[in-house]
């Protein structure tokens, strides 16, 4: 694979919605310090669907929490629509990996989805409208009065997605949302995300450790290095916009992209953020897809 097969994205004339600049996060405590993220800089354009992939322990969740305003970065800034993020912004919604803990078991599906809308002080009729629309959009029109724990894992994550959708965010942050569901459900949920993205025009930042998932979902894939973390590569995914689990995944271009990201991840495992980033070496053999 030659270097020019994979173009660098054009960042100059985009309408930037989310800007991450020089973000560093050092955890201190119990007499030791851990540098989870060293220096992350990237931006996400309005309406983009960007995937972040990296080896386990690369600080993906830390990064996402910094962006969500749940963690304060040690250095650097996160800017959303021109406003610096210092606390969770109202135009952002987060979908966590642990749907079972993120949904409140003492509330029904309806109440879970509606709770953030009450905080927005929306009138009751409008809230109900948004709840109905969001649940219908994720294919759960019939379960309003069920409790989350009465549903399967995949359905619970749909409820969490519906809660985020009903909130009408500009940016949807997703932290390995499908890591805990089975393969078939996962494929369905991936397609759900693509279709929601098309339908709502929302900007999505999707963190995953699954290479195939990142390539299948994203318009761009950001490959992170091992901790202390930097962005190793910003890879545009030049697959057709209309994607299908069967066609897209068996295509030649998909295989090339997956292969490339896999190589980068293999490199990332052995490279810390401080070292310069060489091009992918061709002698790294791909065995599988998950990191």
């Amino acid at each position: 694979m030659s270097g020019d097969t994979f173009a660098t994205p054009q960042t100059q004339d985009r309408d930037v919605l989310l800007d991450v600049r020089g973000v560093q996060k050092i955890y201190t405590g119990h007499g030791r310090t851990v540098e989870a993220i060293r220096d992350l800089t990237f931006s996400v354009g309005r309406g983009e669907l960007v995937c972040i992939v990296g080896p386990s322990g690369a600080g993906k969740t830390t990064l996402l929490k910094c962006i969500a305003g749940l963690l304060e970065p040690t250095a650097g800034t996160v800017t959303l629509d021109g406003q610096r993020v210092t606390r969770p912004p109202q135009s952002m919604a987060v979908v966590f990996q642990e749907y079972g803990r993120s949904l409140y078991p003492w509330k029904t599906v309806q109440q879970n989805v509606e709770l953030p809308l009450k905080q927005k002080k929306l009138p009751k009729a409008r809230r109900q409208e948004l709840v109905n629309e969001a649940l219908a959009a994720v294919g759960l029109g019939e379960v309003h009065d069920a409790y989350p724990w009465q549903l399967s894992g995949g359905m619970q994550q749909r409820v969490a997605i519906a809660r985020a959708v009903a909130y009408q965010p500009q940016v949807l942050l997703m932290d390995e949302p499908f890591a805990a569901v089975d393969a078939q459900t996962r494929a369905d949920l991936e397609d759900l995300i693509r279709s929601l993205w098309h339908k709502l025009g929302v900007t999505i930042l999707f963190v995953t450790h699954d290479i195939e998932e990142s390539v299948y979902l994203g318009q761009r894939v950001l490959v992170l290095s091992s901790s202390p973390t930097v962005v190793m590569e910003d890879l545009p995914i030049d697959l057709p916009d209309e994607r299908s689990q069967l066609e897209t995944r068996s295509g030649r271009r998909f295989a090339e992209l997956r292969h490339h990201v896999y190589e980068q991840i293999q490199l990332a495992k052995h490279r810390k953020g401080s070292e310069p980033g060489p091009d992918a070496t061709p002698d790294v053999v791909a065995h599988g897809n998950a990191v």
Binding site: A93, S102, K107
Partner: peptide, 29 residues
């Protein structure tokens, strides 16, 4: 109170009173 449940509340802008009513109290019940 579960850390993920708390972060969910924070990211959805639940204020002090709402957190007490919808998260802390049911957890403590």
């Amino acid at each position: 109170v579960d850390p993920v449940a708390r972060e969910t509340a924070r990211s959805y802008q639940l204020g002090r009173w709402a957190r007490l009513r919808h998260l802390v109290w049911p957890t403590a019940l």
